[in-house]
Design a protein around this nucleic acid. Structure first.
Lengths: 348, 348
DNA sequence: ATGAAAGCGCTAACAC
DNA sequence: GTGTTAGCGCTTTCAT
């Protein structure tokens, strides 16, 4: 049978160095002055016995675990993974441990995991994306556990947040296509009843049309749920059908790059050239965008920065640093590549 | 100043329901028979006060935290993220919490994070990929903390592992190209001094050449480090140069899909058609493979399954279940798409 | 400058 | 069937 080797504890160090437990604690934590000689004896014992404080015991005592919880929809999606990279980097740098859970847009699952993180006494929690849902977040916030919402809009400005201005980003993108000469601009999105970030992009699209005197044409707008879990395949299938119905705008902008890449494949199979016959634009600036054929014009979200900003803000709050602004909005930028060009008519 | 609301503890439940603390503990954990009436009273109090056991306190007492640590190179790389998805799913299902750290192939960083996980008393640790390095893993294993290596070969069969047979996989892939008629088969890889998984693929490549009486031609083999951190861009740059030197095989196989996609772009820019002039083959079967232009032939690693298998095996070990085989090898399979075809000469 | 001891919330051995 | 209590490893108050 496996037998756990007993780890050395603060007691062992105290005995070994001939001082009291509390003294050892004070040299470890620098929490009181300890005479040089004593300190050295203690350090010697610590090194010799390879002592490392038990964080669980410390956590029980201090109520601080130096742990942050991260709730997100799905780590396997590149956008999420890249943001998480930023969070992880800062957590590590600032000496926090990251606990991660994926909820796959299931709000009950999210709550379940939230509870299990709370049970672990995480020092703070990041709600990264996921469906809109307010109550459970507010409840945690109200019980004075630091929380932060990342890429997930909620009205309550009391709750710290890190967001991108999705509305402005999409408005800018559509404006870019308009300025290129496009007047039939299509939009592809998931349904967005429960996801404000996605709805904001849609509203940005609508707003840009309006600003430029363009009429909203439902034939050019695809709102479909089958794309959500299968961004590439789903979009491909949906576009295939749309193209057959001959309802084709001169430019399509999508909610996310993978939708754009799926769309591009479908469109090309119908003999349409990108961007000569139709312009296509994505959103996110995934790594792959530079290597699609042709390389995809897109809107860049500062993924790593989003993660870093969120982690830093949350940890600042946990550590009760002074916060100037707890609702941070990050900028996006259009990355022009080769899938966008003036429409065919304009060129003639 | 923020004031933590005191959480309700087992004591509160005992008082509220008029029983002893230990009784409450027993109803929570089903660890002794408790009379129905008493149990009900306790449950009532638990529900009314929304009591949830403090896992930190329990962990201190029981030495079990229901937590598993995961050390990996970089969560932002799709391959890793997809495997992690499998790990996370199983951990969640079996009621374990996942602690994650990225070490970016820095062995010192890996050790640092390992230590911090150990400090947190994780019940087990998964070493997922990363550079070869044995000692720190062995040390943990020897101190009877469950560990598992995933996609990271080490000789010691005492240490549980989940691997893919990289040697056989690459051999099969090269054989596939050979059978298509190719006799000049190139290979693109990172250097592999410290990474057995990557070296195995290379050895599989060499072995397949040999088996078929082909001579190893250094002109067709690219081993370059700049591709590691910038798989797409790096490969693109490297290939660009190679093609200029006119050292072009009729088929190229790569260590990873992104290398293949970078290579494809470079090759196409030189006016070479894929697969008519040159066949290209990747490794991993990333989601994007089906949507590159043309869709990429590749070797599929069972990413999610790797994660699930690893998590299940580790947890089985943690829970001291009976293990039949603690060194699991998973199969790969060739996914034929449209970047491979007989070589131009063979077609004439 | 150092030590003794209480107590964080829980489990489990033991007593009744 | 239920209660009492020691103790997990640590921090922190209070004495000395």
């Amino acid at each position: 049978m496996i037998e756990q080797v007993k780890k050395t504890s603060i007691k062992d160090i105290a005995r070994e160095s001939g001082v009291a437990i509390s003294t050892v604690s004070h040299v470890i934590n620098n929490t009181k002055f300890v005479a040089d000689g004593t300190r050295e004896k203690v350090m010697k014992a610590i090194n010799e016995l390879h002592y490392r404080p038990n964080l669980i015991a410390r956590g029980l005592r201090t109520k601080s675990t130096r742990t942050i919880g991260l709730l997100l929809p799905d780590i396997s999606q590149p956008f999420f993974a890249q943001v998480v990279k930023g969070i992880e980097a800062v957590a590590r740098l600032r000496n926090y441990t990251l606990i991660m859970g994926c909820a796959f847009y299931d709000i009950e699952e999210e709550k379940r995991q939230l509870n299990s993180m709370l049970d672990q006494n995480t020092d703070g929690i990041i709600f990264f994306c996921g469906y809109d849902s307010y109550d459970h977040i507010k409840r945690v916030h109200d019980s004075n556990i630091p929380v932060l919402v990342l890429d997930r809009e909620i009205d309550n400005k009391d709750i710290p947040s890190v967001l991108v201005d999705n509305f402005a980003a999409m408005e800018k993108a559509v404006q870019y296509l308009y300025d290129l000469g496009h007047r039939k601009i299509g939009y592809i999105t998931f349904p967005f009843e429960n996801q404000t970030t996605i709805r904001r992009r849609y509203e940005g699209y609508c707003s840009a049309l309006k600003k430029n005197g363009l009429k909203y044409n439902p034939d050019f707008v695809i709102i479909d749920d089958q794309m959500r879990l299968q961004e590439l395949k789903g979009t491909y299938a949906v576009i295939k059908q749309k193209v057959e119905e001959k309802k084709i705008p001169t430019a399509i902008i999508t909610l996310a790059d993978f939708l754009a890449i799926g769309a591009m494949k479908a469109v090309k199979e119908f003999g349409l050239a990108v961007p000569d016959d139709i312009s296509i634009m994505g959103f996110n600036d995934e790594m792959i965008c530079a290597f699609s054929d042709p390389p995809l014009t897109t809107v860049k979200q500062p993924k790593k920065l989003m993660g870093e900003t969120a982690a830093n803000l949350l940890i600042d709050i946990i550590e009760r640093k002074k916060i100037e602004n707890k609702n941070i909005i990050l900028d996006t930028e259009i990355v022009k590549r080769e899938t966008t060009a003036p429409p065919p008519i304009a060129k003639k």
